[in-house]
């Protein structure tokens, strides 16, 4: 009897949390489907009378969202590929190889994990400006190509692969690179996918840096584009379009996340905390 009661309370609380989490999504989607009049209606309406799916098309037409989206996609593909490759290689060296200065170099990585990217912005901006790379894709891609946290996460995971596996593979005639490719990558797959998603989110969310190094609309990333969009010159906001755009921006990552959910969860939880 007490047990059932506790269980009920338990589920009730969890459901309450779930509702809290979902309210912003609900309001975003709900507003995105309202007509302009409904969006401005006082008091606000819980749901639109008619679902205005054309808001999405309108939002896309009103602002170069597709352009921003493509820019973000280009940058994130490059960043994800390059930074994953770089992180995997260095994490492997830290996890498996012995060499002079390993502890020192790894300490550098750990410190880099703690340092806020925002501190680097100043000098990086000067570097990019001096290189005359302002308003280029290079400026948007390169600084993101090394991610100390991903190196750390991957190294933790790779450390958990038993050393005997490595010795066995070496006796079987595999070199380091082949071992990395044939054994480490598949075994560390969840963590690698996680770091990929984390890099992707990073680019999707990044705001301050692109805002500094790009001034042209055709180079804007989605966060910057979205931030400035749908605000008229008088400062009033077209909420239904803004929310439609926000929905469009949110959906891709959610879909990727749901597709890779299984790996992501085990990846997040495998690397960080142990050892």
């Amino acid at each position: 009897m007490r047990k059932t009661l506790m269980k009920t309370v338990n589920y009730f609380l969890l459901a309450a949390v779930a509702v809290m989490v979902l309210i912003p999504f609900f309001w975003m989607l709900g507003t995105a489907l309202k007509s302009e009049a409904e969006a401005l209606h006082i008091p606000p309406m819980l749901l639109p009378k008619i679902y205005h799916f054309d808001n999405f098309a309108k939002a896309v037409r009103a602002e170069p969202l597709i352009r921003y989206f493509l820019n973000t996609l280009i940058v994130s593909i490059f960043v994800v590929l390059i930074s994953t490759a770089i992180s995997v290689l260095s994490a492997y060296a830290f996890a498996r190889l012995t060499f002079r200065g390993r502890d020192f170099l790894f300490a550098v990585v750990l410190i880099a994990v703690m340092l806020p990217q925002e501190i680097m912005i100043i000098t990086n901006f000067m570097t990019i400006a001096k290189l005359k790379w302002l308003n280029t894709f290079r400026a948007l891609i390169l600084p993101y190509c090394v991610n100390a946290f991903n190196i750390f996460l991957l190294r933790q995971t790779m450390k958990q692969i038993p050393e005997d596996l490595y010795i066995a593979a070496r006796i079987d005639g595999l070199g380091n690179f082949r071992y990395l490719w044939k054994v480490v990558l598949p075994v560390a797959k969840p963590t690698i996918l996680t770091t990929m998603l984390l890099s992707m989110i990073w680019i999707w969310d990044t705001y301050a840096w692109p805002n500094l190094v790009t001034t042209q609309d055709n180079l804007r990333l989605i966060s910057n584009g979205l931030k400035n969009a749908f605000t008229t010159s008088t400062g009033s906001i077209q909420y239904e379009l803004q929310m439609a755009a926000a929905t469009l921006v949110t959906i891709p990552l959610i879909l990727i996340f749901i597709a890779l959910r299984k790996y992501i969860f085990s990846g997040i939880t495998r690397g960080g905390i142990k050892g």
């Binding site: 770089i86 260095s90 498996r96 190889l97 012995t98 060499f99 390993r102 680097m120 100390a148």
Partner: peptide, 29 residues
Amino acid sequence: RNPLSDDRKAYFYLLPAFVLLVIFTVYPV
């Protein structure tokens, strides 16, 4: 304690990461 040691190769694995880290993290700080 890994009985197989591969000092020099390790630096190749680390090179790209550290070039970028030095340019975009260490030097800026």
